[in-house]
């Protein structure tokens, strides 16, 4: 629909900072979002995710630092709707206006043909309710309308703030499949969420922030590996002292809990079971705790949410 353009674009955030009267909402934040991948933007509530996204989109002016998409600031783009599609939590339509008219207004302002509105409505499955007023829309329908608006200009970059909020499991699955498909087409997808399990299934990369600062950035597997790559195993035994000694002899870290449980890190369940068998210790429970994004996230952001 447009002339030749690079079919990929990175989002580049460099030393982005936003100070409000007393709060550093975003503090010297730098990260890169790659094309063709879904990047999860994670952080506790109030970490500055929304402020950072709004600065990338030119809605909030940074105190210092820059954010560019494909090397250009959003506010300098002559046709931003064709480059970047965005869904923000607070983005909304006039209650008394139909979804179709809401989209047609954006088409007019962006110089897109009116029928694009009908095309994207069909794409998100709202074509039969496009003439219904926005106030009659359910939360799920509003999120779909948000996606429709974001896709109007067939953009190569998508920025979504909590897009699964208010969606039912089916809607979440739909959103996940859609975002994965869009990334597979080579688009850049940056999506913030507090649903960590959701992000583990969806994201290729994660950017984790807390108190406005970058905590960790990288592929999901790498971030998991760096914090929780060391497997943990939970063991229950009637002979805890004997087992702890045997495990420590094997250079494993062991923590005893008062109720007779042992927490072992540095080995998987098979190794712990083997060591117990060799030492002749009876086991009543042996549970491997798998590394997950949620625990990695909690470990990484522990104590930082309130530190501002």
């Amino acid at each position: 629909m447009t002339m030749s353009r690079p079919n990929y674009a990175e989002i580049s955030v460099e030393r982005l900072t936003k100070h409000y009267a007393k709060v550093r909402a975003v503090d010297d934040l730098s990260f890169t979002v790659h094309a063709g991948r879904v990047t999860g933007f994670l952080g506790p509530n109030g970490a500055g995710k929304t402020t950072a996204l709004r600065m990338i989109l030119g809605l909030v002016t940074p105190t210092s630092g820059t954010a560019t998409i494909g090397g250009v600031r959003y506010v300098d783009m002559p046709d931003p709707i064709r480059q970047v599609g965005a869904i923000l939590e607070a983005s909304s339509a006039h209650r008394g206006r139909s979804a179709r008219n809401h989209l047609r207004i954006i088409c007019r302002a962006a110089g897109l043909p009116d029928q694009r509105a009908d095309e994207v409505l069909a794409m998100v499955g709202l074509n039969t309710v496009g003439t219904r007023k926005f106030k009659g829309y359910s939360l799920g329908m509003k999120q779909r309308l948000g996606i429709a608006a974001a896709m109007l200009g067939d953009p190569r970059v998508l920025i979504l703030d909590e897009p699964t909020n208010g969606l039912d499991p089916e809607g979440i699955r739909w959103m996940r499949d859609l975002l994965r498909a869009l990334a597979a087409e080579g688009r850049t997808v940056l999506v913030s969420s507090h649903l960590l399990g959701e992000m583990q299934q969806l994201a290729d990369d994660v950017v984790i922030i807390a108190a406005g600062r970058l905590i960790r950035q990288g592929p999901v597997a790498e971030v998991l590996g760096s914090t929780a790559g060391v497997a943990r195993v939970r063991v229950r035994t009637p002979q805890p002292d004997q087992l702890a000694a045997a495990l420590r002899d094997a250079q494993l870290e062991v923590t005893a809990t008062p109720d007779g449980l042992l927490q072992v890190s540095g080995a998987d369940a098979a190794r712990v079971g083997h060591l117990a068998f060799t030492a002749g210790v009876e086991l009543h429970e042996l549970t491997g705790e798998s590394a997950d994004l949620e625990r990695a996230f909690l470990d990484l952001t522990a104590g930082k949410a309130g530190a501002r």
């Binding site: 989109l57 030119g58 809605l59 959003y74 506010v75 783009m77 931003p80 709707i81 965005a86 923000l88 607070a90 983005s91 909304s92 339509a93 006039h94 209650r95 809401h102 954006i106 302002a109 962006a110 608006a149």
Partner: peptide, 12 residues
């Protein structure tokens, strides 16, 4: 009606 976001995203 919180449409300023959509408006200014379309026309920065």
């Amino acid at each position: 009606h919180l449409t300023a976001t959509a408006t200014f995203l379309t026309t920065p």
